[in-house]
Write a protein that binds this DNA or RNA. Structure first.
Lengths: 230, 230
DNA sequence: TAACTTGTCAAGTGGTTCCTTGAATAGGAG
DNA sequence: CTCCTATTCAAGGAACCACTTGACAAGTTA
C-alpha cells in the first residue's frame, strides 16, 4: 500500500467518528446517553423517531465505537463507551457555539431568552449545598436521575413539577438543573417556579458537566445503571 | 415553530460541525492547518487532491465556521478559526484511537512499528533543553516551522535531512518532532538518524500539543503567520 | 489598460445517507 | 414447546456528497 493511500485510509478512519456524529438525531442520542444508559424504545421516544430508525442510528454509533450495548432481561441498553465521548460531544458544542453563527439563533429559538434566569455556577452551588440553604432540583426524567445525579439533589421530573410543587418548602431558594447547556427542562422549571412565587435559579450546564468536574454525585441501583468506566 | 422542530434544528446545527469533519480529506486539512495557515495550492498538494476539490473542501470547512481566510497579495490563506478547533480535532482522534478498533491497524499500516523509537515526553524535553544537552529538530516543511515552532528548535525538513545531516554535531542527542501523533515525519527522521549512527528519539505528539501545553514557542514573521487568537 | 495568477463556480456522474414500511430474529415468559 | 416482546434487517425512493473537467472571477503586476 502506498504511503498516500495509507494516510488517506487512516484519516478516513478518523472521519468515521465524525460521520457517526454528523446527523442531528444521532447527536440527540449522544446528548441523552451522556445522562446514562437507556433502552431503544425509550431513546426512540426521546428523539421523536421510529424504533426502527432509532435502532439504525444506534447501530451506526456502535459501528463507530461510540456506544456499546448490554442486554438485561428483554431490554437492550445502550450507553456511551467512555467519558471520552462526552468530551468529544462537549468539544463539538463548544466549537459550534463559538464559530457557527447560526447556532446562536437556533439555540435562542429553542431555549428562549435566558438572560433573566441568573445561572448559578458550580462552585457557588457547592458552597450553598454545604451551607444547607438551598434545594437542588433534578428535573430530568426519573430514569436519568436514577442513573446518576448531583449528591443531595431531589428528583421532580419537569412534567410533574407543577403538581408536586407543594412538597417543596416555600422559604428556601431552589436551584434546578437538567441535561446540559442546550436542554430546556431547567429553564422551563425556573420559569414555572417563579410564576408560582418561588425564588429559583438555574445551574450552569447540567449533570454531565458536574460529573466531569468530579463534584459529588449519587446514583440509585448502582450496579445496573451508572456511567462508563475507562 | 414546534418545540420538537426547534430542538431538531438546533441539533442539526451541531451535526453541521461533525459533517464538516466527516471526510478524510477535510480531516487532513484540519491536521495541516493545526500547524498554521497555508494557501490553497499548498494545501491541495498536502492532501494530494486537485485545487478545485481542495477549494471546495475548504469552503465546506469555512461554512461550518472551522476555518477563516485572509488574502495576502495574490494568495488566499486559510487558518483554523481558533484553538477550540484544535481541541475538537484532538478529541476526535482520542475517541478514534480508544474505541474504533480499525484505527490501530490503519495507524500501524501508515506509521509502521513505533515501539523502538523511545518517545520522550514533553516535561522531560523541557528539562533537557534547560540542561542544554540536546538538539531539538523540527522536521516539518519550512512553512510550518515559520508559522511556529518549539523554542530553540532547529528546522531541517524531512526531505532534506539526509543531505544536511553533516551540519548537526555528532555527539549530542537529537529529539525530532513533527505535526502530531499521527504524522510519520519524525518517525522517519529518527530511523534515518539512527541508521547514520546518531542517538535520536521522537517527541511525544507534535507541535500543536506542545503549544496547547503552553510550553515555550517561537515563530518567524510573527505578524503575518502564527496561530489564531480567541 | 492588458496579461497573468490564484482561487472559485457549475455541471455531471456514481456512490452514499436517511427514513418509511413490513418482515424476520432472538431471547424471555408462560 | 409456543407465544410474545423488543429489536434488527431489507427494500426502496428522495436527497445529498465527492470528485472531475472546463469555464469564470477577483485580484496583482507590468
Amino acid at each position: 500500500m502506498g504511503e498516500r493511500k495509507a494516510k488517506d485510509s487512516l484519516f478516513d478512519g478518523f472521519a468515521e467518528i465524525a460521520k457517526a456524529l454528523a446527523n442531528g438525531r444521532r447527536a440527540e442520542l449522544i446528548d441523552v446517553l451522556a445522562q446514562g444508559q437507556r433502552h431503544v424504545e425509550d431513546l426512540a421516544d426521546q428523539i421523536g423517531q421510529s424504533v426502527a430508525n432509532t435502532s439504525f442510528h444506534l447501530r451506526t454509533l456502535a459501528a463507530a465505537g461510540l456506544v456499546v450495548t448490554r442486554r438485561d432481561k428483554t431490554r437492550i441498553y445502550y450507553r456511551l463507551s467512555s467519558d471520552r465521548v462526552v468530551d468529544l460531544w462537549a468539544a463539538m458544542r463548544d466549537v459550534a457555539a463559538a464559530h457557527h453563527d447560526e447556532i446562536d439563533a437556533l439555540a435562542a429559538a429553542y431555549l428562549g431568552h435566558r438572560d433573566e434566569l441568573d445561572e448559578i455556577c458550580r462552585t457557588e452551588l457547592v458552597a450553598r449545598i454545604a451551607a444547607g440553604d438551598v434545594i437542588v432540583l433534578d428535573v430530568r426524567p426519573a430514569a436519568e436521575y436514577a442513573s446518576g445525579h448531583i449528591a443531595s439533589a431531589r428528583s421532580i421530573p419537569a412534567d410533574r413539577l407543577d403538581r408536586e410543587l407543594r412538597t417543596l418548602p416555600a422559604d428556601v431558594e431552589i436551584v434546578a438543573y437538567c441535561r446540559g447547556p442546550y436542554c430546556v427542562l431547567a429553564d422551563d422549571a425556573v420559569r414555572l417556579l417563579r410564576r408560582r412565587g418561588r425564588v429559583a435559579r438555574r445551574l450552569e450546564d447540567g449533570f454531565p458537566e458536574w460529573r466531569h468536574a468530579r463534584l459529588p454525585i449519587q446514583s440509585l441501583r448502582e450496579t445496573s445503571t451508572g456511567q462508563p468506566g475507562s
